[in-house]
Amino acid sequence: MVPSLSASFRASSSVPLPLSARCCKYAGQSVRAVPIRILWVGKKRSRGVQLLFDEYIEKLKRYCNVEDVQIRSNPKNARDWRAQVDDEDNAMANLIRSDDWVVVLDERGQDIRSEQMAELLGDAGNTGASRLSFCIGGPYGHGQKLQERANISIKLSSMVLNHQIALLVLVEQLYSLKPSNVRCFETLFAASLENLGPSGALP
């Protein structure tokens, strides 16, 4: 129910942040919430990964609209890996609108902390973007087209992550941002809470 969600949201704001945490630059400000899309290249997920992924997505949907979009690996059955990357790149780029805020996940991207991820979400809301799109590439990474389209490129780890593991790390971070940076995120998610229906579910 919406009242219980709102109550727990307010109550959590009284919990002090850990000494090691830094509050993001949007703390205390009103930030427009935007829908989140997760675009990923790959095949069917394993049952265990799917169960855990679904659990995090359901939790996230209490605070914002989240869409899970799969792009088939090697969609044109290219024999050369460079052609495969280009095909996957084009397929993903075709799903991105001109007013999307695009975050590419890449091992060569910026190494950011959790509070910087919070600021990234705030930046997307303040730019007037219609959606925040996180892009996870296939086994050979992203092509030049998507890299040039990205508003920012970040890495989840200095190690190369399988796309299934990258998905879990991403959704866990997105969900954990709310309690760990609550002073910033209680305003960021406020607009999404207002859109919840009587049952507590997004329309």
Results as ranks from 00 to 15, higher is better:
L156M: 15
L156Q: 03
S157Q: 01
S157A: 08
S157G: 03
S158E: 05
S158D: 13
S158I: 00
M159W: 15
M159C: 14
M159I: 13
M159P: 06
V160T: 15
V160D: 06
V160Q: 09
V160W: 15
L161G: 07
L161K: 09
L161F: 04
L161T: 02
N162R: 10
H163E: 02
H163W: 08
Q164T: 05
Q164W: 10
Q164F: 10
Q164S: 11
Q164H: 08
I165S: 14
I165H: 02
I165V: 15
A166V: 12
L167C: 14
L167P: 11
L167F: 15
L167N: 07
L167Q: 14
L168M: 03
V169R: 13
V169A: 15
V169Q: 13
L170A: 06
L170D: 11
V171K: 06
E172R: 00
E172W: 01
Q173Y: 11
Q173G: 10
Q173S: 11
Q173K: 03
L174R: 09
L174K: 02
L174M: 03
L174C: 04
Y175G: 08
Y175P: 11
Y175K: 06
Y175F: 11
S176D: 06
S176H: 12
L177A: 00
L177N: 01
K178H: 11
K178I: 10
K178A: 07
P179D: 04
P179F: 01
P179Q: 02
P179H: 05
S180W: 13
S180L: 14
S180A: 03
S180E: 00
N181W: 12
V182Q: 09
V182P: 12
V182S: 10
R183I: 10
R183C: 09
R183Y: 04
C184G: 05
C184Q: 00
C184F: 03
F185L: 09
F185C: 02
F185M: 14
F185S: 11
E186L: 02
E186C: 04
T187V: 08
T187G: 14
T187C: 10
T187H: 08
L188A: 03
L188D: 08
L188P: 04
F189Y: 00
F189Q: 03
F189G: 02
F189E: 00
F189H: 00
F189S: 06
A190S: 06
A190Q: 08
A191N: 07
A191G: 03
A191E: 13
S192E: 05
S192R: 13
S192H: 09
S192L: 03
L193M: 04
L193D: 12
L193H: 01
E194N: 13
E194Y: 13
E194C: 09
